[in-house]
């Protein structure tokens, strides 16, 4: 049984910020509603006011400006998967968005909701992390920018204050020589919460070596995490496509992730599978890049 709620529809950003200030901690934003409605049904929403952002058109966009990709908080997963800009300059994000839920969820669910929800399993989060995204946050009193890696403070928790909302994400457009990708392990091939997910960006040097690596895992810790030791090992890979070398570099992640047992999988399996997931996704990306040249 869903409790009775006060429902306000914001028409524009200014209106949304006013409502946010007016109701403060009593309100909950609703963007696509694909997380909020599930929680409402389960009786897990303590707030009694809903502020609906779904009609705030100025928060729904994707654009590129002087080498920086900007994604509005209300851009849907379907928007991101179809956007030529995201596909070209932030492929990991397009891949992640295209694997969220099913078509209905991707049509409704937004990237802002996915991030603000702060689930360790949120699929776009590791992608945004390896793209070095920055979160733009606004309130009536101004705006601030937070690197996405610092945005999360725990499962379901973030640095957002009650009167603040996320307006957009921006990240440097990936260019030639940068490889980025995403992989996900679930209980089936669609409509599945990640048992583990992984995203990476590799910058490839002239000698075909990886000169910089960013790798982030979801669903294997209280927040999405970067695995710095594994990243270093990827930078030491030989300049040829070797499954064994990739597999053993990926295996380092075993030491850097800290999953728990839950209904979906045990912690020890998650560790193993996370390493495998990285090896597989990295191999696919490196293989396609080296075949091209």
């Amino acid at each position: 049984m869903i409790k009775e709620l006060e429902y306000h529809i914001a028409r524009d950003l200014k209106g949304a910020l006013e409502l946010a200030e007016q109701f403060g901690p009593r309100k909950r934003f609703l963007s696509g509603g694909t997380d909020v409605t599930v929680r409402l049904k389960e009786g897990l929403v303590k707030e009694d006011v809903i502020v609906d952002l779904s009609r705030v058109a100025e928060l729904r966009f994707v654009r590129e400006e002087s080498g920086v990709v900007h994604v509005g908080a209300c851009a849907t997963h379907a928007d991101l998967s179809a956007s030529p800009i995201v596909r070209r300059h932030g492929r990991a994000l397009a891949m992640a968005a295209s694997q969220v839920g099913g078509p209905q969820i991707r049509n409704m669910g937004t990237v802002g909701g996915n991030v603000a929800n702060a689930s360790p399993a949120g699929d776009t989060i590791p992608a945004l992390i390896v793209l070095d995204a920055v979160v733009s946050i606004a309130s009536r009193s101004g705006t601030r920018e937070v690197p996405i890696i610092d945005f999360f403070t725990g499962p379901g928790r973030s640095v957002l204050a009650a009167e603040e909302l996320v307006t957009e994400f921006h990240f440097p457009a990936t260019g030639p020589g940068e490889l980025t990708g995403f992989g996900k392990l679930g209980s089936r091939q669609a409509m599945t919460i990640s048992t583990a997910n992984v995203a990476f960006t590799f910058r490839i040097g002239g000698d075909r070596r990886i000169v910089e690596a960013r790798i982030a895992f979801g669903s294997v810790g209280p927040t999405v995490i970067r695995v710095h030791k594994t990243e270093q090992l990827f930078c030491q890979l030989p300049p040829l496509l070797s499954w064994d070398a990739i597999r053993s570099a990926a295996q380092m992640a075993w030491k850097e992730v800290a999953p728990i047992d839950d209904l979906r999988a045990t912690a020890v399996y998650r560790k193993e599978a996370a390493c495998g997931l990285l090896a597989e996704a990295a191999y696919e990306a490196l293989a396609s890049c080296w075949h091209e040249r």
Partner: peptide, 11 residues
Amino acid sequence: FSTYIIPTAQD
């Protein structure tokens, strides 16, 4: 159906 897993059209 978030925890009781049945095959989808993709599966």
